[in-house]
């Protein structure tokens, strides 16, 4: 059987995210495992309750470049990966809506779990992205911040 080339799908954009669409896209004949992570807006942050939305701000170019570096490292670390999708919504994301999705397919579950966790954990510390907490009385930059750590091999 001819091998299926690996595929990456990276997006940083204001459009709404669909986990189901990305799972369908990552489904491949040579992969028996698909792991999906969906990061959704919850009603409390480190400093506020009754959160109504988050507002994400970035440079789409810098963020997509950074995510591409993360996926590249993941592929070198887990060469068996099939499809890898990492999508981050920008702008306003309402309560319970999806802000970020990582979907990884691979022949077996171990590398799919490991690579998906690596991608979301590394995204949170290395991708240039900032969010504001929005509640009924106002908004402010999230206090849940991390110094940027550029993704590294190994």
């Amino acid at each position: 059987m001819a091998s299926i080339p690996p595929l990456d799908w990276i997006s940083v954009a204001p459009s709404e995210l669909s986990v189901g669409e990305l799972i369908a896209w990552a489904t491949r004949a040579d992969c028996g495992a698909i792991v999906a992570f969906s990061g959704t807006v919850r009603d409390s942050s480190g400093s506020h309750d009754e959160i109504e939305a988050l507002e994400y701000e970035t440079s789409e170019e810098l963020a997509e470049r950074s995510i591409r570096e993360i996926v590249g490292v993941a592929r070198r670390r887990w060469p068996a990966l099939g499809a890898v999708a990492v999508h981050h919504k920008t702008g306003r994301v309402a309560l319970t809506e999806t802000a970020v999705v990582v979907v990884v397919s691979s022949p077996h579950r171990q590398e799919a779990f490991a690579a998906a966790q690596f991608c979301i954990d590394t995204l949170k510390e290395s991708v240039p992205m900032w969010k504001r907490d929005v509640w009924s009385g106002g908004s402010e930059w999230s206090s849940d911040t991390r110094d940027i750590i550029k993704v590294r091999e190994g």
Binding site: Y56, I120, M129, W130, W141, R146
Partner: peptide, 9 residues
């Protein structure tokens, strides 16, 4: 680019 501590995801 000036990049303050991040809060993505």
């Amino acid at each position: 680019a000036v990049l303050p501590p991040v809060s993505g995801g």
